[in-house]
Amino acid sequence: MNMEKIIDAENLTKKFGNFIAVNDVTFQVGQGEIFGFLGANGAGKTTAIKMLCGLLTPTGGKATVAGFDVFKETEKIKNNIGYMSQRFSLYEDLTVAENLEFYGGVYGLRKNIIKDKTDYFLKLLNMEEERNKLLKSLPLGWKQKLAFLTAIIHEPKIVFLDEPTGGVDPVMRRQFWTLIYKAAEEGTTVFVTTHYMDEAEYCGRISMMVDGKIAALDTPTKLKEKFNASTMHEVFVKIARG
């Protein structure tokens, strides 16, 4: 990979007692990639993501995220990544603009920058009229798009999306992915988990975790060729069932 490595994990391992949740995992993710991180429930995805976000100390191996060490520089990692989960954490009782102001402030952005970002984001989402509305008055799909932009307000090198599109309607789901494409095109690395296998196809590369190990890693096209499958759903089932 000749582009900058935003994630560089080597033999990364996490044990809980005798249980090996993440077992000797090695992979890299480059700048501007949309990287799909798939696996069955309980395969170790969440544990791996927690280590990469600096929330959980690995048992063994090494890894850097955005250039920082997951053992020693976890605070720097937290400042230099974005994170959004399905239970995204915007404040329902704040307005749209106040939410952005709050998160911009948390990341130490100056007031004028936050204002410029807010203007830009609301224009991008076609939500200028909702600027001063309380978040709780908005439909779920709008909140999800706003949560994504909030997660990248500080222009992190990488954003982690943990099942970002759960439950939204098919139109909103696609608008969300258009935002992801745009962020990647502008150089942000996107690390995403999903249970929608059509979304797996939108990723540049996919890794599939089975029992704590990466069982396959490649582009969706190559994975389909390799497993003689016509869809990513089939690939998933073939890999997960072994």
């Binding site: 429930n41 759960g166 249970h195 998933f236 089932v237 997960a240």
Partner: peptide, 9 residues
Amino acid sequence: TGVDPVSRD
């Protein structure tokens, strides 16, 4: 909902 593709199948 929230269940992986194999368990869904």
